[in-house]
Nucleic acid binder design. Structure first.
Lengths: 256, 256
DNA sequence: CATATCGGCTTCCATAGGGAAGCTATAGTG
DNA sequence: CACTATAGCTTCCCTATGGAAGCCGATATG
């Protein structure tokens, strides 16, 4: 009450105390009350000021720290971090949102066949040239036209027959969600800009020469053997990844 | 001791208990002991099993949860999450690392002059057409040749004269780190694939037609007014962003 | 048999308190 | 004056405990 420094904790709210405090402190940063380089009140002071326990304050500081808002230096204090260009990160999730946003995009299966691995594919999937792979091509279409062209090579394993559902996947959710039956242990992604070749240009109904975003993916099964290699090819003018740094907006890692 | 289920907590280690437990549980996931959909032992069980306090277990679970390894459902349990394509995120930090990795890239200032804002620039910077802006062009070069072309428009504010240091920035660190003197409140980033125009092709010593990655940035000052607009243009074949999903590797958010 | 209640489990939140390690400025010593 | 020791602050870690809210199955009741 004698403290005119803004909001205080509402004990009745359904919002947890720690979340409230995170919000309050973030707000002070966006309002410019706290600026990069400034020192936060010490944890003990925050306890008194907001009437919460040390553990709660500790938790709040931890959250703010790995949100990149503050940085703590043992024995010195907690300081507001300056915004850096390198903080930006692009979530692949956005691709799903973007395309699935207005009108849920449909996925059309262009081809699904069994082929022999060529040199490149064999190298990626750690097979010998000529071994059998499942070759699939899909086209993601929104109402505005084709957006994304997806090529994928799957290791053909008679012991683990590829389920129909896998091939017939016709939703982006299917492509993004559990690939197969959650057989994937981990994956490596690469993103780069490329020139579309003739076929790609035609499929995406672009005008040559056209640039595209190529998102390559390589997934490994639980036995650490490559399982799927492929890439998404998106028209440069129809797909854009956005990101934000600093505050003045909701943090991507925020809950709810 | 009677518990053969792997590692236990080392009380003497300098590694904090919570960090050890995080590591142990992650390891169990990568080893396949715990698989997507599996339920973790309850928090109480984890306490007994590893001889740590409930609060510590709670903290561990929180960390794993926002690392995306597990997901907790109130009243039911904590479950291992399946790897999803959408989990991938590309850190702009990598650009800095990539170029600054082997041989630190140099930044050459091609131009720095005062110009009148055209329609596009004025719109971005919320100025009127014709108002003065600082126009800068930089070329980032590694020993392998030009990598990145940077164009930037700064609002010309006589009250806040642009420091020499700002213009003379010749290191990537300078470009990425504190832009100016940490005047930036927040920024918006966009990444897309584009065709290089003639000048860009020439500067980057590419062969037309060539594709490039365009990273556009728009920075706001603390008064919420745009302050800087520009973009990085990188040769598609010289820059690639990598990312990983799932385990079997160190998590990007891990400390130290 | 169908339905409702309850008890035991779960995740989650918050508190109070104690202690280790690190920084800094001050007081004391040569 | 130069240098050292110390006291008081800081972040950071961990424990022990209690309670809220949600899920689920067993038990009792119509």
């Amino acid at each position: 009450m004698n403290d005119a420094s803004g909001e205080s904790i509402n004990r009745e709210s359904s919002e947890p105390v720690y979340a409230q405090l995170v919000r309050i402190l973030r707000q002070q940063v966006t309002d410019g009350v706290l600026r990069p380089g400034d020192q936060l009140p010490s944890e003990a002071q925050l306890c008194r000021r907001y009437g919460v326990s040390p553990m709660t304050v500790r938790r709040v500081v931890n959250i703010l720290a790995d949100q990149g808002v503050v940085v703590g230096e043992q024995g010195r204090g907690i300081f507001i971090r300056a915004v850096e260009l390198g903080d930006a990160s692009f979530q692949l999730q956005r691709l799903q949102d973007l395309v699935g946003g207005d009108e849920p995009a449909t996925v059309r299966l262009l081809q699904a066949s069994i082929a022999a691995a060529d040199a490149t594919t064999a190298a990626k999937l750690q097979l010998r040239v000529g071994e059998r792979v499942i070759y699939m091509r899909r086209l993601v279409e929104s109402e505005a036209g084709p957006v994304c062209y997806h090529v994928e090579y799957l290791v053909y394993d008679p012991a683990r027959p590829v389920v129909e559902a896998e091939i017939a996947t016709t939703s982006l959710q299917g492509l993004f969600g559990g690939h197969g039956q959650a057989l994937i242990k981990h994956g490596e992604l690469n993103i780069e800009a490329v020139l579309l070749n003739d076929e790609e240009t035609r499929l995406l109904q672009a005008v040559a020469p056209a640039a595209g975003l190529r998102i390559e993916h390589l997934f490994y099964a639980y036995d650490e053997r490559p399982m799927s290699w492929g890439w998404f090819l998106c028209r440069g003018d129809r797909l854009r990844f956005g990101s934000r740094v600093g505050l003045g907006h909701e943090h991507p890692l925020d809950p709810t």
